[in-house]
Design a protein around this nucleic acid. Structure first.
Lengths: 174, 174
DNA sequence: GCTCCCATGTAATTGGTTACATGATTCA
DNA sequence: TGAATCATGTAACCAATTACATGGGAGC
């Protein structure tokens, strides 16, 4: 069966253990958010579809827990997830308004162009702070865990962009 | 008036001179595509809306040209464009399936995890080739032009990611 | 008892891609 | 004359956000 974009991230998180829609949303927000988002409006309907397709099943609430609906992968779901994981990735998209503005900045003066570069740096500094906060929440940053590796990628990635902006600013000043 | 995402890129390209919907699509594909896409299904209806809103007007075909509809900015359109340019950027999104797979790769063995990293590098190598082809098409890469600056950003950005993947691969081998 | 957070869900709207339809012009 | 490219446009569909509605439980 075809996986929707949100379907992949749901199966991915469920491959780590039982989770509810709320859990998945929480985890997305503090981990994959920087390269793969999902909203409640997508998650809950998609959980329904995956269940109807037999890829996940309700695990029911644990003892003494407040009312919630946890799901787990079925055999079929795990197979589909692993197939997805090993298939070549395709989706690779970026929408970066700051770069778009800079691209069209030939009509404005140098000072404003510099402001645009500063603005880009600022946006990525905020992302960097968020990622570092996530990193601080991990006991020991274990590079052997793939998810920590991706987190580290995210941090270095933001740092590179910020550095590019600063280099460019210095180059202009010189 | 509120600008839609596609509206911004249309005003941006028209700020450089008269262009048709077809022209805009062609230019998007060989320049902003890497951080801002647009399809015919968005461009043509949006041209209509911008015209109805009085931001652009038909310039008509030039002498001896084949049938086409070129547009130019109105005063109002130029003002809106400049306001957008100087306002803080907001949209900053990425959807990177390769990173998502790597993030969930703890359940697979080291070899497959390495394949995922190689796959990411490969995707960005292709992007890099495309960008270099664009760069080769420019007479002299003039860093003083903002659009060339963004092109160079794109190239170095791809190179950084490829380098990260290679560093990570070597680190694993060691 | 009030507020905050947990938790699930839907409806309206937006934004976008893809595939298709159509036809003119250029060039081999 | 046939293929490629220029050129405009629409319809069907997909994906996603946002805002809203609802209610239970925890802790002050």
């Amino acid at each position: 069966m075809e996986l929707t974009p949100t379907g992949t991230v749901i199966l991915g998180f469920l491959s780590e253990g039982e989770k509810s829609g709320y859990d998945i949303k929480t985890q997305v927000d503090k981990s994959t958010r920087f390269f793969w988002t999902a909203s409640y409006g997508q998650i809950y309907p998609e959980l329904r579809r995956l269940k109807d397709a037999g890829m996940i099943e309700e695990a029911g609430p644990s003892e003494g827990e407040r009312k919630r609906i946890a799901y787990r992968l079925t055999e079929d779901g795990r197979r589909t997830f692993e197939q997805w994981l090993l298939a070549p990735a395709s989706t690779l998209e970026m929408r970066h308004e700051g770069l778009l503005k800079l691209f069209f900045a030939d009509s404005v003066d140098t000072r404003h162009r510099q402001d645009l570069i500063s603005g880009i740096a600022q946006q990525h500094r905020e992302k960097l702070d968020q990622l570092k906060a996530v990193e601080a929440g991990i006991e020991q940053a274990d590079d052997e865990l793939a998810c920590d590796l991706v987190l580290r990628f995210g941090i270095e990635f933001q740092e590179w962009i910020i550095d590019w902006c600063e280099r460019e600013t210095r180059r202009k000043e010189a």
